[in-house]
Amino acid sequence: MHCKGNSLYANASMEDRSFMGKDLLGIRHVKKENIEKILMKAGSYKQADLEKKIPSPLLQGKTVVNLFFEPSTRTRMSFEKAAANLGGTVMNFDRLTSSVQKGETLVDTVKTIESLGVEGIILRHSLAGAPQVAGRAVKIPVINGGDGCHEHPTQALLDIFTIHERKGGTAGLKVLFVGDVLHSRVARSNLWGLLKLGAEVTVVGPLTLLPPGLKEMGVKVSTDLDSCLEEAEVIYMLRLQMERQKRGYFPSIGEYKKYFGLTGERVKRISPFAVIMHPGPVVPGIEMDQSVMEDSRCLVQEQVKNGVFVRMAVLELWIAGEVN
């Protein structure tokens, strides 16, 4: 394994929350040094975990609400575990039994939650910008747990953490995103983070699933997966939603797989030092074959594991301290 850029763990300093903003809405507006700070903290949590040390109960006596308007397994549970590790209490919000069914607006819902006396809200929503609306409505911090096709900042942070851990850094690192960038909040947050940290990012996918303006963002765009594979150091497979086919974005799953699937055949051509990532949930046989999932270079489980440490760092920085 070769090392790139500065080590993130070299220079731990005391945090200053005030310049990070009340809410964590997206990676776009998080400064590079703050990204590095979060990764560093996550690194210490992971290190402590390896050493079987119990982290300080920074969230003791504090409650965060998992306000999830969209289904989620790993993000919700990861935040729950992270909060529990820090001694906090998590309340889960169930959309189906809530007043949202009676037509309550998002603004009213978050104001109600704030009135309960909780210390923070983790919001997952199907519409872009929902955390901005929520954040403006309340004084407590709002952490974006994924909003529509906009951002999923903690996913990007855990991805970048995992990349750092395996590749030693991101400066100059060749990262390839494959698939449905158009509908992917994971891709957007990762693009912002990786570009800020100096990676060379390429996206590859059918033109129907690549949004406009990527080149202006500083991203290379390709439609030929095979020509991108060999030099890629990180291959990040994006989740393909089956229902997209019906909307006319591509003709069939079979054809999609032929051009953009990470098959066992294709994996033979990637570098032995490359890593393969996926935000989950993986449906085997579409974006990648089952054999690829079992490849030692595939970091899917590592990503999930690191998610807890990264979210502990986020909870510490945004919620454990006094509200800005």
Binding site: R28, A128, G129, D147, G148, C149, H150, E151, R185, R188, P211, P212, G213, L214, E216, M217
Partner: peptide
Amino acid sequence: HYGLQSTLLGVKG
């Protein structure tokens, strides 16, 4: 509008 800004905000253009 469908363009860079809609991509950045993740809003359908």
